[in-house]
C-alpha cells in the first residue's frame, strides 16, 4: 500500500513541525548595538554563552558596550565584583542604569552570588575584582548554559587564561589600540578612541575576526571605525599573539 506522494510530503512536513526544536539556538539571542554586532558570531549575544572581554586598554568600555544593548531592550544586568567601574561612563555608552544591579561580594561568596545572578538575570557581568578558579568558571558556564543567561567576564589579565573554555573571547589588541582623539597639548578634551578587537572563540568563530571600533565614538556611544578602513572586518588566521610584557603605560589593575 503506497500512500500518494503529496500526502506523504504533507505527513513528513507535519513530522518536521513536531520534532524540530521550538526555538533554535540562533533565535535565543539578545540584541546588541550595531557596532558591537560585528564582533559576535550571530550578530547578537547568544543566550547560555560566556563572553570574555579583556586585553589592552578599552576592555572595560567594550564590556559596557556589549551589555548596553540588552539593558536597553529590557534585560536586567547583574554585576558582581565591579567596585571600580564608572557607571557614568556605562550610561554614556548606552547602558540603561535602571536595569543594572550591583552585588558586593568578596572571595568566598563570589561563586554563590554569580550563580544566583545567573538564575535571575539575562546578563551577568563579572568584574575584575575577583579572579575565579577553574572550577568556579566551569560551574558558572554550565549554569549559564542551562539557564540561558549570558555571562560577560571582564578581565584585567592580558589573556583569557583565568577563564578557560569561554565561548567567545573579545580581545582588545594592546599593540594597535588606544589612539585617543580630541585632546591636544593643553587644549580640547578626550573625545574618542580607536581600538582593535579580535574576536575568537568556539562556536561559529573558527577564524578570529579583527574589528576596529571607536570606543567611545565621537557621539559617546560605540561606533564602527570608517567602513572602508583597512583591516575592518577582515579575518586573521591566527589567534592574537599576546605580548608577555605589554607596553600599555601604567595600566592599573585593581588589587
Amino acid at each position: 500500500m503506497s500512500v500518494e506522494r503529496p500526502e506523504r510530503l504533507a505527513a513528513l512536513r507535519e513530522l518536521i513541525e513536531q520534532v524540530q526544536p521550538v526555538v533554535g539556538a540562533h533565535e535565543r539571542t539578545l540584541e546588541v548595538d550595531p557596532p558591537v554586532r560585528e564582533l559576535l558570531p550571530l550578530g547578537a549575544l547568544q543566550r547560555g554563552t560566556t563572553v570574555w572581554v579583556g586585553g589592552g586598554a578599552g576592555a572595560t568600555s567594550l564590556a559596557m558596550a556589549v551589555v548596553a544593548g540588552p539593558s536597553r531592550c529590557g534585560s536586567w544586568v547583574g554585576c558582581v565584583s565591579v567596585s571600580s567601574l564608572g557607571w557614568a561612563a556605562a550610561a554614556e555608552l548606552g547602558v540603561d542604569l535602571s536595569r543594572v544591579a550591583v552585588v558586593r561580594a568578596d572571595g568566598p561568596d563570589w561563586a554563590t552570588v554569580a550563580a544566583t545572578l545567573v538564575d535571575g538575570f539575562d546578563v551577568v557581568l563579572c568584574g575584575p575584582d575577583h579572579r575565579p578558579g577553574r572550577r568556579e568558571v566551569s560551574r558558572l558556564a554550565a549554569r549559564a548554559r542551562e539557564r540561558g543567561a549570558v555571562v560577560v567576564a571582564l578581565d584585567d589579565a592580558p589573556d583569557a587564561r583565568a577563564w578557560p573554555g569561554v565561548d567567545l573571547r573579545l580581545h582588545v589588541d594592546a599593540r594597535t589600540s588606544g589612539r585617543w582623539d580630541g585632546a591636544g597639548r593643553g587644549w580640547g578634551a578626550l573625545r574618542s578612541r580607536a581600538i582593535t578587537v579580535v574576536a575568537s572563540g568556539r562556536h561559529g568563530v573558527d577564524r578570529s575576526r579583527r574589528v576596529e571600533l571607536l570606543l567611545p565614538g565621537p557621539t559617546g556611544v560605540a561606533a564602527s571605525a570608517s567602513a572602508g578602513a583597512p583591516g575592518s572586518g577582515t579575518e586573521v588566521a591566527s589567534p592574537v599573539p599576546v605580548g608577555s610584557d605589554r607596553v600599555v603605560p601604567f595600566r592599573v589593575r585593581s588589587a
Binding site: 561580594a105 535571575g120 538575570f121
Partner: peptide, 29 residues
C-alpha cells in the same frame, strides 16, 4: 514590572537574605 524585572528582583531578594541588605546595590544618578 515585567517578567524579567520580577525574576531579577527575586534573585536580588535572595541575595539580600544571604549577604545582608547592604550588599545589593543599584546605581543612582
Amino acid at each position: 514590572s515585567d517578567d524579567s524585572t520580577e525574576r531579577a528582583l527575586r534573585a536580588l531578594a535572595r541575595l539580600q537574605g544571604q549577604l545582608g541588605v547592604d550588599a545589593v546595590l543599584v546605581p543612582e544618578w
